[in-house]
């Protein structure tokens, strides 16, 4: 698939949208801990280092296994420690520390990139110190947008909307569209998910149009590359956002 015409241009500026539909912004470091993480000790260390994240929660991995014995079938559930989730006092910032890396999320209202990435990097340094990964297997920047719409409006807002076959002209009640794009000459890929979710109670009429933009590296990166990689991925994300939404959609976010 050709990528002719697209260049990462860090000097390109993008319009600031005061009412941007971002429900979650995420930076994800996939970097396996190379120091053995002992759950109780790690919790104590994290609590000491994150006084501004007072809510902590243990994260479990959950699996179900079925055992068939002479007495009949029995089901065994398995919970294994996976990591910890810390939330800021206002619960708008979430830090997930796991054996496989670190995830920082900012929920709405999103403020700005500078504050967001500075906080993410501050918390990443805590992970790096405690888990001692030797490299970053994948670094990702993800922005999830949620736009309230009437189902019939979807086609007028997206540049790549779902379509009904011309001959049948059936109304679309649901769709899920995922596309992965390579970024030519750069070690990145862009994963775009477009879908709608039913009205979330107590809402009854308004469907949520989700535009999920996830940019990630395609090869391991060194620690001193983080800053530059984040800037480039932010630029790709911005370009994708303004390319995938039509003008009437953007207009909604200006005030």
């Amino acid at each position: 698939m050709s990528g002719e015409g697209f260049k990462i241009d860090l000097s390109e500026s993008f319009e600031h949208l005061p009412n941007a539909p971002i429900v979650e912004a995420v930076i994800h470091w996939r970097a396996r801990a190379e120091r053995k993480l002992e759950p109780a000790a790690l919790l104590d260390q994290l609590k000491a280092k994150l006084p501004d994240y007072p809510h902590s929660q243990r994260q479990q991995e959950f699996g179900v296994a079925t055992q068939i014995s002479a007495e009949g079938e029995s089901v065994r559930q398995h919970h294994a420690w996976h990591g910890y989730r810390f939330e800021s006092a206002d619960k708008l910032q979430i830090a997930q520390y796991t054996r496989n890396g670190f995830v920082f999320s900012r929920l709405k209202p999103y403020q700005d990139w500078e504050k967001f990435q500075a906080e993410a990097q501050r918390l990443w340094c805590v992970y790096r110190e405690l888990a001692e990964p030797s490299e970053i297997q994948r670094l990702g920047v993800r922005f999830i947008n949620l736009i309230p719409v009437k189902p019939r409006e979807v086609a007028s807002l997206l540049t790549l909307p779902p379509r009904s076959p011309q001959i049948m002209k059936l109304p679309i009640s649901a769709f899920l569209h995922q596309t992965k794009f390579n970024i030519p000459d750069h070690p990145y890929e862009l994963n775009v998910v477009q879908t709608i979710q039913p009205p979330a109670p107590p809402e009854r009429d308004s469907t949520g149009l989700i535009l999920d933009l996830d940019v990630g590296t395609t090869r391991p990166i060194a620690f001193d590359e983080i800053e530059n990689r984040l800037l480039q991925m932010q630029s790709i994300k911005n370009k994708a956002f303004f390319s995938l939404l039509k003008k009437p959609a953007l207009k909604r976010f200006r005030s």
Binding site: I94, V103, S105, I144, Q178, I210
Partner: peptide
């Protein structure tokens, strides 16, 4: 069986469930 969730919001969870 679960996979690691890259995000903390209900919307992130919804997307992951739909794709899965």
């Amino acid at each position: 069986m679960t996979t690691t969730l890259r995000g903390g919001s209900q919307t992130a969870e919804y997307i992951q469930r739909q794709l899965a």
